[in-house]
């Protein structure tokens, strides 16, 4: 959890449901710092990629209006218990993080 990415994947009826949440402030750039009154610059995840055993199965292009600590879930056909789901993101400041977990 050091990278703040949580992954939960489950197979049922030949489909895998992947649920993820990624720790990130998702600043819109419209909010003001209450102490200084200055605008807090935008800081948000732009692209999150989701891979199943090394193959991209979903790509999320996010804007700053996605909630703080973005939650994304999707479904793909196939997948087996023990397969690897990898999540990696990059934000508008060029920072990135990734994590992987097995399908349960």
């Amino acid at each position: 959890m050091a990278n703040g990415i949580l992954i939960r994947s489950k197979v049922s009826g030949g489909e895998t449901l992947v649920r993820t949440s990624m720790k990130h402030p998702m600043e819109t750039g419209l909010r003001k710092d209450q102490k200084t009154g200055k605008k807090i610059p935008p800081h948000f995840i732009q692209v999150a990629k989701f891979e199943h055993n090394g193959k991209v199965v979903f790509t999320a292009n996010l804007g700053p209006a996605v909630s703080k600590n973005p939650y994304v879930s999707f479904k793909f056909k196939g997948g087996n218990k023990g397969d690897t789901i990898k999540v990696s993101w990059v934000d508008n400041k060029g920072k990135s993080a990734s994590n992987e977990d097995k399908i349960r």
Binding site: F58, S67, V72, S73, F74, K75, K77, G78
Partner: peptide, 14 residues
């Protein structure tokens, strides 16, 4: 959200 072949037309977010 970009959805390649094999992925369903489904997404959930906040």
């Amino acid at each position: 959200f970009e959805i390649p072949a094999g992925t369903l037309g489904y997404v959930s977010t906040r």
